[in-house]
Design a protein around this nucleic acid. Structure first.
Lengths: 199, 199
DNA sequence: GCGCTACTACACTGCACGGTGTAGTGTGCT
DNA sequence: AGCACACTACACCGTGCAGTGTAGTAGCGC
């Protein structure tokens, strides 16, 4: 008995669900709390999504799709049409790492996915952001600005260099870091990347 | 009414608790299941540890202490008394990354800590393994084998370079990787590190 | 044997929570 | 007005589970 309902209400439910799941984790999160947060009756949630599990998966999928778009936009505005390569990579990494360290939705969702990976195998999809980044690195390689024989691997390392230390020190967003520390770590990460992959 | 009991029984309980917590996560894990796994009555668990939360924290602390010792031993047998630096770092990274990628206890516990970080702030202690690694890098710096002005930061990056891609691709141990892929990623990570910090 | 301690087996309480059923209300369409 | 539909409010069921209380047993020192 799944009602399709209005897109606005679906969005409200999914947003509320994400918030509660992120704060509590899947098992602790209560559907009553989600309903209250969404300003919707519990019954409506069940009419829309059937059960808690489907609601969870929908919330994750919806949000991840938004993140991919944001990531694509960030790539366009920092790495495409680059003049100063180090600066471009730094600006890219800065935004990315700052999201990570500020207990932002992005990292929390990663944390949630890691936590629930064993219980929801469907969460372990591919990682489109890495391939999007790899495409850019390959383009920079063709333009002679980088020496990147394996763009996918290089994208993996760039991502790790730029976000890894920030993730570790912030415990995946659970402890906030100040911007100076983030900037410093990102700067160092970019330098390391260029030392290895620069011309 | 906390009984101190026998060390052997405490160990059995903690081991069983860890197993169930790792498999199920904190909220889903049932004390009955832990009791069954430990071959002990539920009542005994409560007599020993008081409540589920304390049992959880004890299980984490106990296991982490063991890991620190193991890490220290690994450092000694790979990085101390080094002749071929790249090879030494590779051997170090290989063991470390393999643990990570094989869904081993070590990563699962990290995953669990990440998942529960928000609910158990006491889990977010310092990270003694990083400082242990930093000490070694500083020694290599003094011996003129590396150029490491900030050993703590360098240790952060070495750790990230060696384990990051493996963690990402294996979804923190949820998906096993084959040894060739691990070796390749570790090799690349070490080369990047040396490109940035080598003499 | 006696007493003490550690432990088990098990029944039980209280509660939180997933999920359902239903009566009633608001809104918009014809 | 009358109908259809979306939604809410709320009561309700079943269950799983943290935590407790207790009676009984096995072992051990004396």
């Amino acid at each position: 008995m799944v009602r399709e309902g209005s897109p606005a209400k679906r969005a409200a439910i999914v947003r509320a669900a994400l918030k509660v799941f992120l704060a509590e984790g899947y098992a602790r999160a209560g559907v009553d709390a989600i309903a209250a947060e969404a300003g919707v009756s519990k019954r409506t949630i069940y009419d829309y999504y059937g059960d808690k599990e489907r609601l969870f998966l929908a919330a994750i999928a919806e949000t991840r799709a938004g993140h991919e778009q944001g990531f694509e936009a960030l790539l366009q505005e920092t790495i495409d049409d680059v003049t100063d390569l180090e600066d471009a990579l730094f600006r890219f990494g800065r935004v990315f790492a700052t999201e990570v360290a500020k207990s932002a939705e992005r990292t929390e969702i990663l944390r949630l996915m890691i936590a629930e990976a064993a219980h929801f195998p469907r969460l372990l999809a591919d990682r489109p952001t890495r391939t999007a980044l790899a495409d850019r690195l390959e383009a920079l390689h063709r333009r002679g600005l980088l020496d990147v024989p394996d763009p996918v691997e290089a994208a993996e390392f760039l991502g790790v260099l730029v976000t890894g230390p920030v993730q570790n020190r912030s415990w995946y967003g659970a402890v906030p870091l100040d911007q100076d520390e983030i900037d410093h770590l990102v700067r160092s990460g970019v330098r390391i990347f260029l030392a290895a992959y620069g011309r």
